[in-house]
Design a protein around this nucleic acid. Structure first.
Lengths: 235, 235
DNA sequence: CGCTTCTTTGAATTTCGTCAAAAGGCGTGG
DNA sequence: CCACGCCTTTTGACGAAATTCAAAGAAGCG
């Protein structure tokens, strides 16, 4: 629809979702986009909701988490600026498979199912972009499966941290800071361990100076060391 | 290219990959397809290979497995008749992310990258089908992540078995038989446990009459019981 | 300043992986 | 047809990593 922020179209052009589109297509994309400003802790959608749209984040951070039938929670993924989310459901069973909650004040755009499909039919490149994005996520999730099957908790936490740094890391004077706030529980849920184990591991790393954490904001001080923990076969 | 089996085009039409295509499109698809007969234990592609094609299985069974940098192996998925595989790599980094090996004598079709892209641009429905297929797999893999994070080995094996039954199950007089041969190691690798634990669990189930296994062929005799193990919160 | 939420830490318990070894099946070749 | 060898499966014992249970300490917010 409309936006109070005229810069949105330019941001859209840089998103992976709309790479390699002709300028005229970019305009159509922007014209059908819905922009929303979202305060911290807003639920963007809930697992099971049927009114599915295609979302993308302009700025801020979103936690995508899934609740099992047994009540166990897993964090599927954190979404940073420029990433799409909640879009796969448009193609599968028409219901969101997970919850989405903002971690900080955020800005999102979204498209209706009809608009997105119309865009795809007109510009097949969009569909190809979506396949590439989902394909990359599929590989990431499969890596997580491998980690969960074969690696111990400390290593998995290290991997999770590195993934977050790659995805939403911001370089500062004393290391790589992760953009959005993360509770110990979040780290645990994305590493596949418990709050307690995650806390012990992070505390140990803080004491060793590999990591700083203040107010749920994490800064990786010595990425090389974390990487060594993540990769070193001789644990 | 060509086929010594004139029935292939009809089979193609029933594959999820080509659903809802106009008949003329089906013909183009068939015309560019490469058909190959593959003996048991053939390596269709290897992790890291760069000459990527889009594959689909007509009959038989294929194991897709991934080797971690640390040498640990995970079975990503088993492919049954009608399923596509090895296709995501066409859209991502151009290298197969896993190995593919036939479990039995099989028949596959494949398309070159160029041919598939040409088809997609001409018939966007193919791209949409691919997104749906990959989207479903993404959800499946995410379910596995949740299981690995929160459930114990016995339950994960039960889930793996049910997934296999749904995907490649064949109803017989004394239960649901899984089409392709599975070693204990395969079950372990897809359940995220060890050969030993998997063996203990399956042996126990066999003794309890829930399952029969002869010559690497599994038959689920009492699906309801397996389902109870998989779902029951009170383990 | 009090309350809620998040984090840390300790101790006991347990599941599961690791190590080890033997038994069973199947095909091949003599 | 039997024997040998390879691959797969079973089973036992042990140990260790991590969950669970329990409780107290910090920190931010109203």
């Amino acid at each position: 629809m409309t936006s109070d922020l005229p810069l949105v179209p330019q941001v859209l052009a840089t998103m992976e979702l709309f790479l390699e589109l002709p300028p005229v297509a970019q305009e159509t994309v922007a014209a059908t986009a819905h922009v929303r400003r979202l305060p911290k802790d807003t639920r963007i959608f809930n697992q099971g909701d049927a009114d599915v749209r295609a979302h993308a984040l302009i700025e801020g951070g979103v936690r995508i988490s899934q609740l099992g039938s047994d009540g166990a929670q897993v964090v599927v993924r954190f979404i940073g600026p420029g990433e799409m989310f909640g879009t796969v459901a448009l193609f599968t069973n028409g219901r969101y498979p997970a919850d989405a909650v903002t971690l900080v004040d955020s800005l999102e755009v979204s498209w209706s199912r009809a608009d997105l499909f119309a865009l795809m039919v007109r510009y097949p490149q969009i569909a190809i972009n979506i396949i590439r994005i989902i394909g990359n996520r599929l590989q990431e999730v499969q890596d997580r499966v491998r980690e969960l099957s074969t690696q111990r908790a400390e290593r998995r936490v290290a991997h999770a941290l590195l993934r977050l740094a790659r995805q939403a890391g911001h370089n500062t004077t004393d290391g790589t800071a992760i953009e959005f706030p993360l509770r110990r529980k979040d780290l645990a849920d994305i590493s596949g361990t418990t709050l307690h184990t995650a806390s012990r591991i992070l505390t140990a790393w803080e004491k060793a100076g590999l990591l700083a954490s203040r107010n749920q904001r994490l800064t990786i001080r010595r990425p090389a060391e974390i990487l060594r923990i993540a990769e070193d076969a001789t644990d």
